[in-house]
Every structure is written in C-alpha cells, then in structure tokens.
Amino acid sequence: MAVQGIRNKVIKRFSNKVVARKLLSMGILPGMKISIVRRAPFGGSLYIMAGSQYIALRKEEFQDIITE
C-alpha cells in the first residue's frame, strides 16, 4: 500500500463497528480530513492526522475508513 501518498482525504464512512465507535468517540467523524503522516518503525501501524489530532491506527483499521 502506497501509504505515504494519502493526504487530505475526506472520511466518508466506516466499514467496521468497533472502529467506528472508537473513532467517533475520539471526535473523528465523516467529513473530516485524514492524512497519513508516517509509518511505524517496524511497520504495521500508521501515524495519522485526522481533523486536528494525531492518532495511531493499524493498517487494517485504516482500511476500515472509507474515504471519498
């Protein structure tokens, strides 16, 4: 996955309930912009900027975010 290329995509919806619940409660909502900042040193997870906060997600969790 060419993760470095994902910049300022707009969140459309979530394809997993647990991911949806958790992200929503952290204030990450459809309509917000999401960018991948960097990969973890040993891979597997991503350093992400969503709206105006930084979060860490695994690749699979990131794939549960459907962008426009």
Partner: peptide, 8 residues
C-alpha cells in the same frame, strides 16, 4: 481481531 486505535 485486536485493535490499536490510540490517541497520540
């Protein structure tokens, strides 16, 4: 399935 999802 496990989850990471953590605020930085």
């Amino acid at each position: 399935r496990g989850y990471l999802m953590i605020q930085l």
